[in-house]
Design a protein around this nucleic acid. Structure first.
Lengths: 183, 183
DNA sequence: CATCTCATGTAACTGGTTACATGATTCG
DNA sequence: CGAATCATGTAACCAGTTACATGAGATG
């Protein structure tokens, strides 16, 4: 739920919807994302529920900022979520795997091209994400040394993304080898 | 899109909404799932669009079956989807990772317990899924030897699930080691 | 001169989940 | 005797995506 991602980042410090989008893009991108529009909509809902409060900060040279902060109720709600264990593994959807699943009759050269494209997407872009996320984490800890304890787990989730993209590439290599050997 | 998963299975042979659910559960579970209710709703939409056609087969001892089959338009639509390359990597959401990300201040013993729970979920249940899916693929090929070419790619996607769950377990071990070493 | 960044949002739509509702037969 | 299997679906809700709309200042 996006709700808790937003409450989570706001528990670090007050910020705008725009800032929240930056944070999502720079740290939870691999396992939780949201469009800017959804973030604004969700913030409004959270304000209606009394979990966050906002105030507008006028700016001269740039658009005014609406800064959100957690209310006591919001913090309590977030803490309650944090301490509630998740009992099931998350389900994933992957359109590429679905298409591959049904590609038995497809042209093999075309299939190979698709696999190579996704090998590149996961390899290159995954590595890029990881460099950026790692840099973001290090920058945050440098600027806010009190966040070290949090950063340890940010880093843990970042490594998940690293492993995931590596696994994806290795798997594609395996599939390519399979196609080479059997047809 | 569930639409194409349904068209895909129907391209193998006509079947009911119930059968489609079995097929999803036994083969695409790792990368595409759907509730029974969503399957029925989507089938109705597909029929309205003229991509599938259905007829009711009365049964005495069991509920009547509504059997769906692809129309020519449905087959054409499915083939068009199959040959359209996917240009982006799929995004995933994982509530456990999100919770872990924000757990810097959580009780370490509690954290460890959560990690062990998910280690078990991914390890045991993942292995189970894989055994069942592998058995399902082998059974299908035995009964329909002409499906061998398709089965090769079913097997490829199954191995993805195998790798994924293994990767998840290894990653959890890494996180546990990290917590041991740094507190 | 064009693109990126900062900064806000609304509206319409699409897709997916949860809960509800029914009911016979088979298996342990 | 209870649970699982077979078999259908509706209704209400929730979450997420895409498209639209605006506009100044900074960077290359």
């Amino acid at each position: 739920m996006l709700k808790y991602a937003l409450l989570g980042f706001l528990s670090y410090q007050p910020m705008t919807g725009y800032d929240l989008k930056q944070n999502l893009d720079n740290s939870t991108q691999f396992f939780w994302q949201a469009q800017q529009s959804q973030i604004y909509r969700t913030l409004k809902q959270l304000e209606d529920e009394g979990l966050v409060a906002s105030q507008v900060e006028p700016q001269d040279d740039r658009p005014d900022r609406r800064v959100y902060e957690l209310t006591d109720a919001g913090l309590a709600d977030f803490r309650a979520w944090l301490t509630t264990p998740i009992a099931d593994m998350s389900l994933h959807k992957d359109g590429f795997l679905l298409k591959l699943f049904f590609s038995g009759g497809a042209d093999r050269a075309e299939l190979r091209a698709q696999l190579l494209l996704h090998r590149r997407l996961h390899g290159q872009q995954g590595a890029l994400y990881n460099r950026e996320i790692q840099a973001f984490i290090q920058r945050t800890v440098t600027e806010h040394p009190e966040m070290a304890q949090n950063a340890q787990l940010w880093e843990a989730t970042r490594r998940f993304g690293e492993r995931y993209t590596r696994m994806y590439v290795e798997w594609i290599d395996e599939v390519l080898a399979l196609l080479d050997s059997k047809g």
